[in-house]
């Protein structure tokens, strides 16, 4: 089993890009190695974006694949603090 691939989120993770991100993340998970989601570049995060991140985490649990979120940007940290959620 190779190391999880690194997935870099573009600066916007919102309703506008949610569908796109979902497809791409699921595709990453599809290769069976898990995914490391790099959140350092996220400049905009909304509920839709948050849902995609949670979906990715849940899907990792379901498929028993490692899903890791790294380097949350200030925007991500703020949203997680606001919702008292952890990734």
């Amino acid at each position: 089993m190779t190391a999880p691939r690194r997935f870099v989120v573009d600066e916007e993770l919102t309703i506008v890009t949610a569908a796109d991100h979902r497809e791409r993340l699921l595709a990453f998970l599809g290769d069976g190695n898990g995914v490391r989601v790099d959140l350092s570049g996220v400049a905009d995060l909304d509920t839709a974006g948050l849902q995609v991140l949670m979906m990715t985490r849940n899907e990792g649990v379901r498929l028993n694949l490692p899903v890791e979120f790294t380097e949350p940007s200030p925007v991500v940290t703020e949203a997680l603090a606001l919702t008292r959620l952890e990734l």
Binding site: I15, A18, A19, H21, R22, L26, T47, A48, L50, Q51, V52, M54, M55, T56, N58, E59, R62, L82, T83, R84, L85
Partner: peptide
Amino acid sequence: TGVVTVTDRLPEAADMDPESCYLSF
């Protein structure tokens, strides 16, 4: 002073419409 985000309604990836709202607070 407190927030609980309820994620119960978030469906599995395959059934999820990324543009629908599933969270309650």
